[in-house]
Design a protein around this nucleic acid. Structure first.
Lengths: 219, 219
DNA sequence: TTGCAGTCATGCATCTTTGCGGTACTGTAG
DNA sequence: CTACAGTACCGCAAAGATGCATGACTGCAA
């Protein structure tokens, strides 16, 4: 049951290939025809699947465009929380958010570049990363709750959950803001070619800076 | 053109009546048949309008169930921000959020009670108040920005906007959490009959308390 | 090799939501 | 009273999203 990571197997290879075809088709069509002209039907046809199957691979059209894996996260999440965590809880939560948002979608550099371009042209899409987060909110709050429980002077359960909710919101909105300014200023395609400091890191840093300055001011 | 507040006029009276019929129909059907059995078609039929017209009155099915007015807010918002505001910025923002979420929908007490019951049975609906907020996010951030600009040591524009975003998120999630716990513990229908301390106030207080305790801990 | 159990792809039906366009009604000015 | 302008209502079509049922395919074990 828990056979892992050695033999992909035909089944998984096919599935991976299909997902890749969908992502490519979505990105291509959006860049070619615009966001609303690129319908699910069109993308599906191009990827050689039925529209119904499309939604077996992605939760939404936007998710396909951004290449957001539907679950896959669960693994990362578990891993994140299992960490030793001598680190600042805030940093851990930001990591969680960045991962869930799929900001650092590891893989094809071209595809990544194209997605940045799409986010520049259609800012609405970028904010669907946010929606992705909301959808997983309950599970994420649970993770954050565990993180906080380590350092917090243990209040009652409801209180702790509420605090986790707020902490998550802080980090999420910070990352969101960071992504927005990053997308807005990312008109230097050459710079992102090399992926020098790594896009995800830039966003992480900006988000942390925002959080600290804002919280300091609010008190 | 700017004749106001004396003669409602037949047109407005009809519109108000229709909106009320929709709200009542929505609440009744949800309580009777459940959330998903109460389709837009069913609600519309019961309210004696076409399904198309339904969306002329409300942005979504959930909005109708909760009785969230589509704009109407704009007025309140402007008013909020125009205030003198010797008050804590955080309190102001919380007010903004509570108003926008339509937590204190003034009006029919029975309807209010029914809505609380619906939120208890179908928690998903409650979180669509949150969505309502996201939809108006840009405008709200602008308002919060102005509020913050008064006390903040003026950073650059992007920074200020980012901070406003985060502050809004903090307050929004706090209110959201407060609503959730309030709904969860609101199994004393007798208590809410009298509307003693006013539901909205209870939520405001709880939210503020949450914000302060959480922020203090995160630093 | 064969067969079984678990997945996957798909068609179909349904629901929510939105844009467009036409028709009917309201308020008002002549 | 009448005509005109502005809304409101509604039908229609299309898109995004989801549940259900069915047939096909894969992986594995006998």
């Amino acid at each position: 049951m828990v056979e892992d990571s050695k033999k992909p197997g035909l089944r998984d290879r096919k599935r991976t290939a299909t997902r890749a075809r969908i992502e490519a088709a979505a990105v291509d069509l959006v860049l070619r025809d615009g966001l609303e002209a690129a319908t699910v039907d069109a993308i599906s046809e191009r990827a050689d699947i039925s529209p119904r199957t499309f939604f077996n691979y992605f939760d939404s059209k936007d998710a396909a465009i951004l290449g957001l894996k539907p679950q896959a996260l669960e693994d990362d999440l578990a891993e994140q929380v299992a960490r030793p965590s001598d680190v600042d809880p805030i940093e851990a939560v930001v990591d969680l958010v960045v991962t869930t948002m799929g900001v650092g979608h590891g893989g094809d550099a071209d595809l990544h570049q194209q997605r940045v371009e799409i986010m520049r042209r259609h800012p609405e899409v970028a904010s669907s990363q946010f929606a992705q987060l909301n959808a997983r909110k309950n599970r994420l709050v649970e993770q954050v709750r565990q993180l906080l429980a380590r350092t917090a002077t243990f209040p009652d359960d409801a209180e702790l959950t509420a605090r986790a909710t707020i902490a998550l919101a802080v980090c999420a909105s910070a990352v969101h803001a960071a992504v927005e300014t990053w997308v807005g200023t990312a008109d230097s395609p050459a710079a992102t070619d090399i992926d020098g400091p790594d896009d995800a890191d830039v966003i992480r840093q900006r988000a942390l800076s925002l959080i600290h300055s804002t919280l300091k001011e609010l008190l």
